[in-house]
Design a binder for these strands. Sequence first.
DNA 1: GTCTATAGCTTGATAGAC
DNA 2: GTCTATCAAGCTATAGAC
Lengths: 186, 186
Amino acid sequence: MPITKVKDEELLDRLTDVFRTHGFEGASLSRISEATGLQRASLYHRFPGGKEEMAQAVLERAGQWLGNRVLAPLSGPGKPADRIRKMAHELHLFYGGGKHSCLLDSLSFGFEESTIKRHVREGMGAWVEALAKVAREAGVSPKKARQQAQDAISLLQGGLVMARVLNDTGPFERTLANLPHVILNN
Amino acid sequence: MPITKVKDEELLDRLTDVFRTHGFEGASLSRISEATGLQRASLYHRFPGGKEEMAQAVLERAGQWLGNRVLAPLSGPGKPADRIRKMAHELHLFYGGGKHSCLLDSLSFGFEESTIKRHVREGMGAWVEALAKVAREAGVSPKKARQQAQDAISLLQGGLVMARVLNDTGPFERTLANLPHVILNN
DNA sequence: GTCTATAGCTTGATAGAC
DNA sequence: GTCTATCAAGCTATAGAC
């Protein structure tokens, strides 16, 4: 037996899957245990803070993905439309072509303010701001840039909801293809 | 003491609130009991099928609202743009200006196929189809009508997600105002 | 680092008095 | 129709062996 039964990366992958499929309250330790192949006690060894810490670790990693694969390319070199197409490709991969739900959706239910909700809010806020910045760089007015960035996020999030409900990833994928137009339209 | 402590309508109102705020798994009987003012046993007297039946009753009522306040006006008399504005007004009321989440979102987590998920799917499907029909009546090509209907639902659902996460109902309300353009654009 | 076993609480659901 | 009291099962979390 190896020192660790499941590597950190794969463990976080599976945790991510459970949380975005079932939400925080629906992600019971039984489901997590089954999905990861680790018993309860082993999970607590890795995450002494329990379920809350697992969710935070998942969000932290998603935040890194957002920074490295979305925000960085968006503020990198290249034509604005190309940067957005690059992001769309990363989103296509991350969301399994629309088959996976977004943590920003699944982990935002319940009204009590928490570290998790703050983390989710920061992620979405940074995303909107990065999109608006690209639009401004492409010559869109600040006000319109902000609105079009919001529209893009709405279309993406709503597209994922539709995919989950209707079992149809078409709208989400079409939104990915239209992102440059939605964000840069002048 | 009146025969019933809480009237059916108000009971369903409060149940709706709990389910769309916390999702199905997060809507514990403790929360439901607190929100409705009824003890567990009283809830089971009204809904012998338990939590599942409560959620179904909530969805059934939401389906009636959808039919009476959204689908009916959409297929009624009047100019297409006016019908859509009428719907937008009803949506504004139903979602508390964006402060309330949508049941189609909150009750669609978890992958196991269920009566609830089927109910949710039918609701969203009928909504998309009704919007596409209005667009076609306004002269939009069938293909474009379908896409613009999907975009409208995506924008609405995503706007509600954004509102919940960012605590900002602006994008949702702006989408409501833009609905005629989104759906009827030729 | 993983496991079995278990503690203690919360869950969904029921029985029976009023 | 509502309530108190209760149940078994599920939950999160912990102790301690290997």
